[in-house]
Every structure is written in structure tokens, then in C-alpha cells.
Amino acid sequence: MDDRLRETLSAMMDDEADELAVRRLLSHGGQDEVREQWQRWQQVRGLMHSSHSPADGVDVSVAVREVLDGRARQTGDHMVTDPKPAARWQWPAVAMVTMALLIGFGAGAGWESVDGTVGAPVAATQPVDQTTAQPVNEIALQGLDEQQWEHMSRYLLEHAQHNSVGAGRGSVGYARLVSASGSGY
């Protein structure tokens, strides 16, 4: 699968894959390859989120084609006269599934695979005192009640603000901020 097709998959995630590109992806000779890539990313995502991957063995291309065709029938005339809005069609259902594909891709391609030097120099040579030797009591966020979560997320937010700033990372800081404020729970 070439970069352009890969980019289409990623654009699908952003709700802005243009229709032609998606059609190209669907008519790509190696449908197995596309499907495998999709499932691989989905599995990585599943691992990240320690949940079962809903994409196991699912071929989304049929559903996608149906959406495309339905859409094309409805908006066919419109597309000719005004190509710009048509190019940014919404695709919420698939976007939800595709949401974390790239993340998954990152997980597969990055951290562990580069070379053997990563782990070596990290050895914690510092004397470990007794307090650090004890396991840290972990609190599951899911176990917090609403008030507790609200309380905690205030700290997350404030820290994200320090941090947006903090590590001098620009966008990462914003992302942490939004993530902390999010409606994910």
C-alpha cells in the first residue's frame, strides 16, 4: 500500500477523506492488504486500550461502498456545480472506527522497533530506597464518582496549563489540555 492510500486512511479518521480518494482506496488491487492494514491498526489500538478489537475479520469496504453510493446518488448534481463542499463529506460512523488507526500505526512503527540501544543505557543505577520499592497503590479512574472525577480533572487541567507551556511543546500542550477537559468519561 503506498503512502497516498495510507494518507487516505488517515484522512478518513479526520472526517475529510475526499470521495475520489476513498474510491481509489476501495479499488486498490490489494484489498487484502488494505484490510490487513486496517485490522492491524485496529488490533494495535485494541491492545492499547486493552479491549477486544471490533475489526477482527470485519470487512468494512462493503459498508463504505454503500455509504459512498448512497451519498453519490443524493448529492450527485451538487457535486458537479460545487466541488468544494462535496469534497468534505462527513463520514461519522467510519471515522469513529478509524479514529485511532494512525495512533495504532505509531505504536507499531515507533518505540520498540528502532534498535537495541534504547533500553540499554536506561538502567536505574540509583540506590532504591524503601519507599520506592513498595508498589504504588493504583486508583482506577473508572472507580471515581462524579465529584471525585471532577476534582481530579481540575488538577489535570491546571497541570496541562502549566505544561502547555511547560515542555515547550506547543501543540502537545494544547492536546493535553483538551484531553484533560474532554468528555471521554
Binding site: E146, W149, R154, S164, V165, G168, G173, Y174, S183, Y185
Partner: peptide
């Protein structure tokens, strides 16, 4: 401008600090 939904009040979300330059 942030969505009202979710449990966080709007004013808590605003970046209220110096941005990257301060640290860079």
C-alpha cells in the same frame, strides 16, 4: 470557544499561562 458539554466548566479550560516561549 469550547463545547458546554462535559463536566468541566469553560473557564477552567482556558490556557491561563505563558506559552512555549517562557520555557524555550
Amino acid at each position: 470557544v469550547l463545547p458546554e458539554r462535559g463536566r468541566i466548566r469553560l473557564d477552567q479550560v482556558i490556557p491561563s499561562g505563558p506559552f512555549a516561549e517562557a520555557f524555550a
